[in-house]
Each structure stands twice: as C-alpha cells, then as structure tokens.
Design a protein around this nucleic acid. Structure first.
Lengths: 334, 334
DNA sequence: TTGTAGGCGTTATCAG
DNA sequence: CTGATAACGCCTACAA
C-alpha cells in the first residue's frame, strides 16, 4: 500500500498524491478530492519511516524521568507533552526507576527509539559523568548545572526555594525544624541543594543546626515521610516544624502526625515542595513551594527544539532558571 | 554519518557493520572489535528510519489516555511502559484531555507518529463510533465492550466491582449511601456501569433508591468530590455512606467531610475506586477497589503485540476481563 | 498544475 | 565469513 497504489486509483502520479497529503497548495480542487477518495477507499496511511528517512526527522523527542507514578513527574510529563504537541512533536516517555543503569540506557537509546533529542531528569547520574557520555543527540537537562555544563539546562533555584520555605516556618514561630528527604549518602542533586537552603535559613536567623533534625530517607515517597516522623518520635527529638523536600513526603508526614495526635500547624508546622494537585486536599491543606512546572516544560521543549535545528547544534549552552513561588495554605502559621 | 562511513574506517563493507550492530553471530571477533571501534570513534548511531523503512516496523506503540496528571492514568501509563519495554517496544503517550476531538485525533495520528498500534482509553467516544472509525492500525480498547466489538478489549467488571463496594458499605451498616461521580448526561462508560452496580447492591439488599443520593460531577477530580459533599450538605440530604467513583473523588470527599466535622467512618463510611498510592495515606486511610492495573497493562500490551504481528490481524477479537479486589482500610466499618 | 528520475541509509539476496 | 547490488516508500529538483 504505497503512494503509487493510491496514485493509480486516483489516476494521477505519486507526486500528486504526495502534494495532496502534504497540503501543497497548487493542486486542483478536483484532483485533490479524487486523491482523498482513493486514500479513504484504500485505507492508505503514509509510511513515516520513508518520509523520516528522506527528510531526516521524526518529530519525536524522548523524556527520561525517574518515576511516572510520582505526581511531580506525571505533571511534568503532562506539561512536556503539551508543549511538544504545540510544536508538532510527540513524546516518548522513559521511566528510569531512579536507577543509574536505566538512566544510562535511556540516554543511549534515544536515537534507536526514533527520538531526535531528549529531555533528561537526572537523579543518579551526576553532571561530570553525564558530560562525558557521548549521546549523539541534543539533550536538555533538568537540574542545576555545575560550572560550564556540556548541555543546555533548565533549573529551579532549589537552594533559594528551600531557604524561603524554611524561613517561612521560622517566621511562623518554629525553631526546631526538621528537614526530611536527603537521600543517604547524597552530596549533590536537588535534595542536597534543598538541605543547604534549609541550613542557610537557620544560620541567617540565628538558629543552631541540629543534625538530628536532618532526616535522611531512601526515596521521596509518602512512606518515607511517614517513617521519618516515626523515627523522630521514637528518638524523642523535639520538633515544631517540618520542611519536607517533596509534597509526597509531606503527605506521609501529615498522615503520621495526625495518627500520633500532633496538631498541625499548632504543634508542628509543615511545608512541602512541588505543589502537587493533591496537596491542597490534604488535611490541613499543605503550604508548599510551586516550582513552576509549566514554565520548566516550556523552556525545556523550546530549548531542545532550538538545539535540534541543525544550525544551532554548536551555539553556546544555555542555562535557564525558572522562578518558584511560595503557596501559603493551612499547614503553617503565618 | 552512515554505515558506509563506519565501514570505510573499519576496513569492511556496510553489510558487515550491519551484522555487527545487529549481533549477527557469524562475524570474526576481531572484525567485530574493529567495527565497534570505528563506531565509537565516529560517534555513529544508526538511522532508525532507514531500518524501519526496510523492515517495516518501528517498535513503537501509542497510548491514548484522558489525563496523565490523574494518578490512575499515570499508574496505568507507567505499567504499560514497563510491559512494553519488557517486549522491546517504546511508548508514545497522548493525553486526550477528555475531549472528544482529541480522542479522535489521537486515533487518527497513530501511524503518523511512527506507532504501529495504539492502546486506547476511551472517555468521550462510544464504541459504535469507535467501531466505525477507520484507524489503519491495531487497537486495544480499555473498556467494557458492547456486543461484538471491532477491536480487542481489556476491561474490569465495573458493575460487579461497584456492587461489591456498595455492599461492603451496607454490610458496615450504611443505609443512605451517596454515589458520587456520574458525569452529567452520561448513560454509558465506566461511570454509568458503576452507578448500575451501586443500584444493584441497594436493590438486592432491599434498600430504596434515592435519586438525591446520586450526585453527578463534571469530572473525576478531587475538587469534584469536595463540591459533591458541599452540595449534599447544602440540600440537607442525610447520608451515612459514600461510594466515590474514583479515589481522587474520595480524597476530595474526605477533605470536605473533615472540614465539615463529620467523623469517618463513624458518621459516614467512605469507599473509593482505583487504589491509588495516595489513598493509603489519606486520613483515614481509604477503603477502595483495586482494579489490577498491572494486569490490565500486561493484557493490553500482549494483545496489541499479538495483533500487530501480521498473521494475527484477522484473528477473532479477544475480550479480556481482569479481576478486581476490595482493599479494606480505615474509612469504612467492617 | 503534474510527471520523471534519483537517492535518503538499511537490510536481504546472491555470490564468493 | 564478507562483498556487491537491489530494493524499501517517499520527497524534490527539474522538466513539461
């Protein structure tokens, strides 16, 4: 079933069929109609591999994220897909299960999945390593760059946002603020930045650090928040505020606090990070940091598409920073 | 940058390069090594469009869902991607925004996005219409079929599950049970089936229907659950149980009940549908129906791949039914 | 406004 | 085990 077949039925040549399906303007109305009829009649669909081969593009991009079942990444994926579709591109999603190996595979597989570029959310692969990989396709990285990165980056200011969140708790009267969500052994990446921002806030406001209030977790799930609170309680460490590194952690935290009989925000104020849709329906509704997902997605897709256009491959790397917002709800005192 | 270029550097022909990258076994070890070296050196990646053209496949499938930001569909997408990857396929996700037009577009665009088949979650397009569309690619539909469908279907027994959920509330002592989530004007689709199951349960247990307890919503979001409870309260309709058609609705319901001072499950027992991860961290943890997402995804992908293999295109349509489970938690009395 | 011819990068066929 | 050659289906100068 080729253009040739359609052409024969319509009584024209393949060239004309091509003109019709590609909306080339200078085709007689009547010819156009005959061709469309033939297409319908035969159930013809164009072979996109052939077109891709000829034109050298697929209009497909890849998006590598740690875990699609986490609301933040689902929202991000949705926003990326929307932005891409607005530019006539489709998106292949590749969850990496927060595994180093799967992240590497995702980067290497880009081309073999027909994608012309990739938006990459790193968790396990650090920038030095990333910058040494040879990927053979344009990349936009969603994280804070260090020094002169090899690829375009889109980021939010994790450290500043974390500081703003922590200071908001302090302004509400909290003095013993727990920070929940640093991964064991992590010294880099968003969680580490958020911890630094937390410490900044304490230092600037003259509050002593207490390492017992910095709770590491194995991941960023609700269960991690719940376990963190249990650990805090079990070791009898007093606390009157919690900065959860993600809203999912915060959801687990709120659950645990409720079960243990703490009043939020009176006994303990809680702030999250991500502004998931879910967070406004928690009880009490969660104060959180809105990272501006739509803006992140827009910048990422725009930059990737620019980079994909052949003439821009060598242009200087661009690092885009997206503004965050503090969303004030009922889980904190103001 | 073609195989030819690699071949010249490696001192072989393109044919040999092809054999190497495709793991054809009968290539001398030494030749193989030389070829890989050349590939590394040149940063060569195969042009998959060319291969697709030659072999007639892309190993890409599409997944059309209403909204990726809804946990159920994010979980489903994740499961479908995992299943597809296990079979060496990648997935293009197409959110249809619960819009009739976007659902149609998704179905028509399949091929033009390089996908060889599509898994389709209908919301707005009914089966008669779907069965008349000419799609030109294998389709697996995730919904209950009516009569003799044109395509393969994978379904859960919505009506039976809804009945089981409602009966569980009845067994817990609820008599005035609200059903929340039927779309305005919907007489078909999963919501309608769930309403029927709800009515079945009441009838079988000798409880009179009260249409005031059947609350329609515009969508299946948390906000819809919240508004439904407000509407119930405002019109002073007494109720002691709620069957929410999704866990997201239930989350909004629990929030509203908490705000209004109802005790769950003592004053009002609540049951949901979907078993989102979130639901076990709601306060109180939500009793719900687990539709078996992994099983659904596995059946969908398996059936689609079978259907894609040329010789199976004409085999009889298969309808797969996946079992549900009741997950009992603290939002209901037992 | 439509027809003709050639090539995009790969793999398959046939030799060797 | 490897080399040459011919498609795969489409697009685009160029020609008419």
């Amino acid at each position: 079933m080729t253009m040739q077949d359609v052409a024969e039925v319509a009584g024209v040549t393949a060239r004309t069929v091509s003109n019709v399906v590609n909306d080339y303007p200078f085709v007689k109305k009547e010819t156009r109609a005959r061709v469309w009829d033939a297409i319908e009649q035969l159930g013809y669909t164009m072979n996109v591999s052939a077109r891709g081969l000829k034109q050298g593009n697929t209009r497909l991009i890849a998006l590598a994220i740690p875990d699609l079942t986490m609301p933040y990444f689902a929202d991000l994926s949705d926003a990326v897909i929307a932005q891409a579709q607005a530019q006539g591109m489709s998106v292949i999603i590749e969850p990496t299960a927060s595994s180093r190996q799967r992240e590497q595979e995702a980067l290497h597989r880009v081309k073999s999945q027909f994608a012309e570029g990739i938006i990459y959310c790193p968790l396990e692969i650090y920038q030095e390593e990333l910058d040494q990989l040879s990927i053979g396709a344009p990349v936009v990285v969603l994280s804070e760059p260090i020094g002169q990165p090899k690829y375009d980056h889109v980021m939010i200011k994790n450290r500043e946002a974390a500081r703003a969140a922590t200071e908001y708790l302090i302004r509400g009267g909290s003095r013993r603020i727990a920070a929940i969500g640093l991964g064991a052994g992590q010294h880099r990446g968003p969680a580490a930045q958020r911890l630094l921002g937390y410490r900044d806030a304490l230092r600037i406001n003259g509050i002593n650090l207490d390492r017992h209030l910095e709770i590491t977790t194995s991941a960023w799930h609700r269960s991690d928040g719940l376990q963190a609170v249990e650990r805090l309680c079990k070791s009898h460490i007093p606390f009157d505020g919690i900065f959860a590194f993600t809203d999912q952690i915060a959801a687990g935290v709120l659950y645990a606090l409720q079960v243990k009989g703490f009043k939020v925000p009176d006994d303990v104020a809680v702030i999250g990070f991500d502004n998931n849709d879910e967070s406004q329906y928690l009880v009490p509704a969660l104060t959180t940091v809105d990272p501006g997902i739509d803006e992140i997605a827009k910048c990422a897709v725009d930059n990737l598409i620019k980079r994909m256009s052949a003439d821009k491959r060598q242009s200087p790397r661009v690092v885009t920073s997206v503004d965050f917002k503090l969303i004030k709800r009922q889980s904190t005192r103001s």
